[in-house]
Structure formats: structure tokens, C-alpha cells
């Protein structure tokens, strides 16, 4: 295993670690948003039975959770190692710094990354661990068929009744958008995917996907807050 550690310690090995773990986390964010889009159907049963299905996975859920958590931890620790090395690579800063083409998103990756970390912790305390100080009181149980199950819909609904919480999530979506819009195209370059014809497409896709994810999540929060759902718009029956 020492070869793996020495690979991780090298500059490109660290970058590849960021790219691969970033891609996995991106996959998670996509699935997370797609699952939550079920809020848009108005009926609480949809999201509640989805949540029940996930919880019923039992040990598999824990495998997924531990896997996700280790990928996340690896992404963060590698980021810390690389950015510390980057800092010490320039011991004296320029008196007059200049930037020619580096995007705002690319320059704020460390900041946006740590904001995402902070928000993920808040998000977990809010919806997973349900810390009383953060999570508003909600109707805890709901009956689906014969069984009682956790009322995820009520938990989200009561939370997003509060404009402060909605705005906090909105700010987070903007940060997530910045992080993903650079991260996606950056990981392609790191993995050696650079081509005259495809790179512009990758950049556009990266931007578009980041927008779809942030927008989709925002749509869920707003839809719940404003009590407007797809059936209201005549989009689904």
C-alpha cells in the first residue's frame, strides 16, 4: 500500500485524488437532488415513501454512508494538504497582485470548499441528526400503508416555512454552484481530458450541470416555502 500513499503524496497524485473524489461527490449531489425533486409532486407520500425505502436499506445504507463520508473526508484532507503546499510555495506575496484569466470560481475554490463543508455539517445537524437547537419541531410520524414512518415531508415543510432557513440554503446553493462549475471542468483537465473539440463542451456542461443542481435544489426549497407544486402549474396531473 505504500505505493498508494506515495502516489497520494505526489502533486499530481493529490490532484487526481481531488478529481476522482470530486467526481464521486458530484454523483452524490446529482442523486440527492433528483431524489428530492419528489417534493415537487405535492403529495407527501412520494418523498416519505422514498425516505422509507432508503431507510429500509438497513446495512446497505450504512455502507453507503460510510463510503460517502470517507470519500468526503479524503476530498477535504487532500484539499488541505494541497492548499497548504500551495501557500508555502509562495512565501512572499506580490505587493500588487494581478489576474488575467483565472475565473472567480477557480480562485475561490478553497473558500467555497470550506463553506460547503460548513454547510454540509449544518445540513446533517438539521435533517439527519435533527439537533433540537437547529431543527424546528415537526410532526414526527406518518402512516404509509400499515406502517408508521418518519415524516420527512413535515420536517422539510416546517423548516422551510422560515425565510431565514430558506435564505441560508439559497446562499449555500450559490456557493455550491461556484464550487461545482469550476470543479467539474477542472477534474476533466486533471484526469488528462483536454481536447480542442471537447474541452469547450466540457466547460459548458460543467457550468450547465452546476446551474441545474443549484437551481434544482433552490426550486425545491422555494416550492415548499411558497406552497406551489407541479400540479398547481398543471404540469403533472
Amino acid at each position: 500500500m505504500s505505493w498508494l500513499l506515495s502516489f497520494w503524496r505526489s502533486s499530481i497524485g493529490g490532484k487526481v485524488t481531488m478529481a476522482v473524489t470530486g467526481l464521486m461527490l458530484f454523483g452524490f449531489v446529482v442523486v440527492h437532488m433528483l431524489g428530492n425533486l419528489q417534493f415537487l409532486f405535492a403529495e407527501p407520500e412520494k418523498i416519505n415513501s422514498y425516505a422509507k425505502m432508503l431507510h429500509d436499506l438497513g446495512p446497505l445504507l450504512w455502507v453507503a454512508r460510510i463510503g460517502l463520508l470517507s470519500v468526503f473526508a479524503l476530498h477535504v484532507t487532500t484539499a488541505i494538504r494541497l492548499s497548504r503546499a500551495n501557500r508555502s510555495a509562495r512565501p512572499v506575496a506580490y505587493q500588487r497582485p494581478g489576474t488575467v484569466q483565472a475565473s472567480m470560481a477557480s480562485r475561490s475554490m478553497v473558500l467555497s470548499g470550506f463553506s460547503v463543508l460548513g454547510f454540509v455539517i449544518y445540513h446533517l445537524l438539521h435533517f439527519t441528526l435533527e439537533v433540537p437547537a437547529i431543527t424546528p419541531e415537526f410532526e414526527a410520524q406518518v402512516k404509509i400503508g400499515e406502517e408508521f414512518t418518519k415524516n420527512v415531508h413535515s420536517m422539510v415543510k416546517t423548516s422551510f416555512d422560515n425565510w431565514y432557513i430558506v435564505s441560508a440554503y439559497a446562499v449555500f446553493q450559490v456557493i455550491l454552484f461556484l464550487h461545482l462549475s469550476h470543479g467539474m471542468q477542472s477534474l476533466a483537465q486533471t484526469l488528462g481530458l483536454q481536447h480542442k473539440r471537447y474541452t469547450p463542451i466540457i466547460k459548458l456542461t460543467s457550468f450547465g450541470l452546476a446551474l441545474v443542481i443549484a437551481g434544482g435544489n433552490m426550486l425545491i426549497a422555494l416550492s415548499v416555502k411558497l406552497d406551489r407544486f407541479l400540479p398547481d402549474l398543471g404540469l403533472v396531473g
Binding site: S11, G14, K15, L82, A85, N86, A89, R90, T99, V100, Q101, A102, S103, S106, R107, M109, H182, Q185, S186, Q189, T190
Partner: peptide
């Protein structure tokens, strides 16, 4: 040297 973060400066 530092590590590239794909900013292309």
C-alpha cells in the same frame, strides 16, 4: 513548487 488548480494564468 505548488500544485496546479487549473486556473490557467
Amino acid at each position: 513548487f505548488g500544485n496546479c488548480t487549473n486556473q490557467y494564468e
